[in-house]
């Protein structure tokens, strides 16, 4: 499991609680003497709730078995998901992060994960483009299309050709989704991660000058990254863009 998938699993742990209660409710609703479905729902639902309750254990287990625990801990900490960790465990990873540049072991560990490998493993792009509203709309239409396609296949109306038509529409939507996602990432980036620094609004903030950053939510529940950095004469973007080695 790569680092991103691991964080996603921990970050969406509340969904397991919701799923658990939903399964328990369905189990209760379908209960009768001739139906064993409620037993499966009962066991699965209880398992989901237990997984949610043991989320701190899941975080500790992930940190212990992840090939990149420092990266995992740093992101989980910014997302506020390390609050339940035992103090000694949290202290261990915090110390590793704070002394990253002075600790030879930690430094070697970080250097073992080259950027190109990191980007490939986690399916990340260094160019971040503007959010595409149309992408959401296509995605919004894609799920009902798939649902309708399954309904058509499951029904007895096999010779109407409706399945082929709906299936074709679903495939086209899937192609549009994959193509648009790639386009949105690569065209007109607003943020670019470079070896020299972070390019944002035409200014390159060097990595050395960045002191720390926070992830917060504003009054409208929009996620905002606040980056604090020392004033080290940030150069204009053009100077950096002209150097070929600046880009990954």
């Amino acid at each position: 499991m790569n680092v991103k998938t691991n964080i996603r699993l921990i970050g969406h742990i509340r969904l397991f609680l919701l799923l658990g209660f939903l399964l328990l409710f369905l189990s209760w609703a379908t209960f009768n003497d001739n139906n064993s479905l409620h037993l499966i729902g009962l066991i699965t639902g209880s398992g989901c709730i237990l997984l949610f309750l043991s989320r701190n254990w899941l975080v500790a287990w992930s940190l212990k078995h992840s090939p990149h625990p420092g990266l995992l801990y740093a992101v989980l900490e910014k997302m506020g998901l390390t609050g339940g960790l035992h103090w000694s465990l949290a202290d261990q990873y915090q110390m590793a992060n704070r002394t990253s540049m002075n600790n030879p072991t930690w430094r070697a560990h970080v250097m073992e994960y080259p950027t190109s490998q990191f980007l490939t493993d986690n399916d990340l792009d260094t160019d971040v483009g503007p959010r595409q509203a149309r992408l959401r709309r296509v995605l919004f239409m894609f799920l009902p299309t798939i649902g309708f396609f399954i309904y058509c296949v499951a029904s007895d109306n096999l010779y109407s050709g409706m399945e082929i038509l709906i299936g074709g529409i679903a495939v086209i939507q899937l192609l549009v989704l994959s193509n648009r996602k790639r386009k949105a990432r690569n065209s007109h980036p607003l943020v670019r991660f470079m070896t020299t620094g972070l390019l944002y609004e035409g200014i390159v903030i060097s990595w050395e000058s960045i002191d720390h950053w926070e992830y917060i939510r504003d009054a409208h529940y929009h996620g905002i990254i606040v980056i604090r950095y020392y004033d080290s004469k940030p150069s204009a973007a053009r100077q950096f863009m002209s150097r070929k080695q600046a880009t990954i």
């Binding site: 680092v3 420092g70 992101v75 910014k78 971040v128 943020v191 929009h222």
Partner: peptide
């Protein structure tokens, strides 16, 4: 000390992706 705020709702990314990139690049090149 200066600061800049990046609104993720205007970008084609997620908070996990963005934080991962920040942590990795800072640890590698910072």
């Amino acid at each position: 000390m200066q600061q800049t705020a990046i609104d993720l709702s205007t970008l084609h990314t997620t908070k996990i992706d963005f934080l991962l990139l920040l942590v990795h690049f800072k640890s590698q090149y910072g």
